[in-house]
Design a protein around this nucleic acid. Structure first.
Lengths: 368, 368
DNA sequence: CGTTAGCACTCTCGGCCATAGAGTGCTAAC
DNA sequence: GTTAGCACTCTATGGCCGAGAGTGCTAACG
């Protein structure tokens, strides 16, 4: 049940173990109780709280079996059980119930985006804030970038102190800017001085020849242009190149405090690592290939993560952006003891929503 | 001594108490020891570590005096002394030594900025990172904005789906963008369709009439223009308005982990408040009037802060940016037990450096 | 009169121990 | 196959004690 919608997962549990129905419900109960309380859960408490129709002793033997299968573990002899990373994995893949967001939650989220005219930065900020609030984890959102950035329009502007600014509008409406090389201009100006008229003309030429071309296509045309225009085309192709792919530089995060509040991070050293990772979200860089595979939600649990310092946390991430148009990532980071049944649909829904915004609106107008 | 360079400070200690030379050196030693160790400091340790030429008993009586003056306090009967906020204030104002940065530190910092062609975002990130690293506190840097934003150049671009983008380059080289109102354009287009030529012409008109004007000046000229140009001018004046003053939205922070590592925040509740405050650095909004008064470094210690949740932390901040040109804020946030003699000159130096970058380079080229 | 030594007092911190409680695993009976 | 019972293990908690650090006061000293 509830399989139809299951998230794309990483190491598609290699040796699929067959569990009895009892083992399944015990594992589910352990995961859910532990996620809720962060306290190792014992057989008696489990029976009481989840109304299992068996005695604690029976549950104990089921637990022992699950432990030999590597799905549960045991902090010490007389403590309750805790799910292992593999246990969470199984839970996420086939034990978890309801993987769709409440209609009311959806509306609430959508409502927040429809409020005002938002700039793209504000949209990203808002997305991070909603993710963080509704999953109570740390949220990370990258801006959507053209998967293949394409030339739109270029404009050359003369600034106060003789500097020249090149403003490039990408085909999808993003704006990037860079100054032109002063030294080059000076050398060029020794022949004939360069005025705004010259700049305008160079821009006009490029704006006829280059629209909708990608970085390498622009580069191939450079030789056709006069020196000034060629230089601008060169700069433009650089900017296009830098705009390709997922942007892990200008990332928006929110809700770091949520993670630090979790009891497993309340003390000391682990905290440091997590913060460090989150600070400059460069961990995303390493995970881009994994996370952009397919379209669905990716769940990476504890040690499944290639990154050493992230063995104590789980990620629930999804790419967003229409195919071949723009591409961003969003998701949450929390303890492995994460409320997956909430996080997964939230991430999925928000990715879909951002998708919509990027595709229909270049996210700069209101939406409803 | 070392008064010449003293930082601009908030509540210029109203009733200036006259302290004896002994009291002054005891207070200084207490502050410095406590800043270093985070452990309440006792009379014996003080004599040993600071080579005072008196006995512990004498120090004790000096401490008792300082306590009645409200400069020290006492966690419990048999513990050492801890500086009060007022104690730190006095220390910062007249006890602290050396308020200039080492020449080597200066060069090291400057070197990092001179490395590569940096975008403005990268400069801000770098500044935050340097501040955080060299003070071991949390750093906050806001982008510099024109104190009075002025029109530079406007460009209207047609996007793929009939939308029109207005790109405004400010006189100081900053670029902002906004879409034009779709409804308005549609209505206008019912009379005569609008092509790129019309857009170009509207832009050209404005680019002759408006350069170097501020938001209200632009607004006053709106009526002179034809409908399309008038609409663009309206949008431009809005964008100018929004670019006035200090920008506390797109703030760069770094080194939050540094603060959380401090023993006073290692546990629990205080942490939460600090993080919350730092998350969306909206605390800056409330402090802008205070921090932009004058040019120097501002130190706000614990309860001196108007903001309740910041009573446990100190701020060392300075505005940067040439007068009447651009304005940003940068500084650090740490426990009241902050290494002021290091933080103050670092903030001062970095503010001066950013000042330079903003003024001479619009920070988009290398610098050396 | 300021400074210092001495001393009684206070409070924290760490270690130690005992107890309570939670949870387990095993076994024998149902 | 399930369950009740039981012995066992380990943690957490609280009380107790002694060591150590630090204070404030007082009396003596130069």
């Amino acid at each position: 049940m509830a399989e139809e919608h299951s998230p794309t997962t990483e190491p598609r549990s290699s040796r699929r173990v067959e569990l009895t129905e009892r083992q399944r419900s015990v594992l589910r109960a352990v995961v859910e109780d532990y996620v809720l309380t962060a306290v190792p859960v014992g057989s008696k408490a489990l029976v009481e709280r989840y109304g299992l129709q068996v005695s604690p002793a029976t549950v104990r033997s089921a637990m022992a079996e699950l432990e030999t299968l590597g799905l549960l573990s045991h902090p010490h002899t007389s403590a309750g059980r805790v799910p292992s990373d593999l246990g969470y994995r199984l839970y996420v893949e086939s034990l978890m119930r309801e993987t769709a967001l409440d209609r009311t939650d959806e509306l609430m989220i959508r409502h927040q985006f429809s409020q005002v005219q938002l700039t793209s930065d504000q949209v990203l900020r808002l997305a991070a804030s909603i993710l963080a609030a509704s999953t109570r984890s740390a949220a990370v959102v990258t801006p959507a970038r053209s998967r293949r950035a394409r030339y739109g329009h270029v404009q050359l502007v003369e600034l106060a102190d003789q500097a020249r600014l090149c403003v490039l509008v990408l085909a999808d409406g993003k704006v990037v800017q860079r100054r032109l090389d002063r030294g080059f201009l000076d050398r060029l100006a020794q022949a004939t001085p360069i005025g705004q008229a010259d700049l305008d003309q160079a821009a006009a030429t490029l704006n006829v020849e280059l629209p909708n071309l990608s970085a390498p296509q622009v580069r191939r045309k450079i030789t056709r242009f006069a020196p000034l225009a060629a230089h601008v085309a060169e700069v433009a192709s650089q900017m296009l190149e830098e705009s390709d792919g997922v942007n892990v530089e200008e990332v928006f995060t929110d809700g770091i405090a949520n993670v630090l509040e979790q009891p497993e991070f309340a003390h000391s050293a682990k905290l440091r690592g997590v913060l460090e990772v989150l600070r400059r979200s460069d961990f995303l860089e390493q995970l881009v290939p994994v996370l952009t595979r397919g379209e669905g939600v990716h769940v990476i649990i504890g040690h499944e993560n290639q990154i050493e310092t992230m063995h104590e946390v789980s990620l629930v991430f999804a790419p967003y952006g229409a195919r071949d148009r723009a591409l961003g990532l969003l998701g949450v980071l929390g303890p492995t003891r994460m409320p997956y049944p909430r996080a997964i649909p939230t991430v999925r829904y928000l990715a879909a929503l951002m998708n919509e915004l990027v595709t229909t609106e270049h996210y700069s107008e209101s939406h409803d």
